[in-house]
């Protein structure tokens, strides 16, 4: 084994990322649920000017609902397949 491999392996064994880093699915899910709700509400009764601008499409409503669905997808995924528990010996808080 070269010096480099020894050094990196040692650092890997001390690394805390695997044990302590939060799951990004929670953040994506949370942000998109919030965005989805905000944009959907903005799209529930669009002004005539907004509708005309968006070629008659209820674009806020559709985008909002799609973002809400994406957010919920991430939260459900997280619920169904939670992060694997850290292997014994890892730092736990």
């Amino acid at each position: 084994m070269s010096d480099l491999q020894r050094e990196v392996s040692e650092l890997e064994s001390k690394s805390a990322t695997a044990a302590r880093l939060f799951d990004i699915r929670r953040i994506i899910g949370g942000l998109f649920v919030v965005y989805g709700v905000i944009v959907t509400i903005a799209g529930i009764s669009p002004s005539d000017a907004d509708l005309k601008k968006a070629e008659g499409v209820h674009i806020n409503l559709w985008t909002g609902l799609a973002m809400l669905a994406l957010g919920l997808f991430f939260l459900v995924w997280l619920k169904l397949r939670p992060t694997a528990p850290p292997t014994p010996g890892d730092v736990q808080e």
């Binding site: 990196v8 650092l11 890997e12 001390k14 690394s15 805390a16 990322t17 044990a19 302590r20 880093l21 939060f22 730092v91 808080e93």
Partner: peptide, 11 residues
């Protein structure tokens, strides 16, 4: 939130 996962330079 990621700060607490940084313990080594490799992190």
């Amino acid at each position: 939130a990621a700060r607490r996962s940084v313990k080594t330079s490799l992190d």
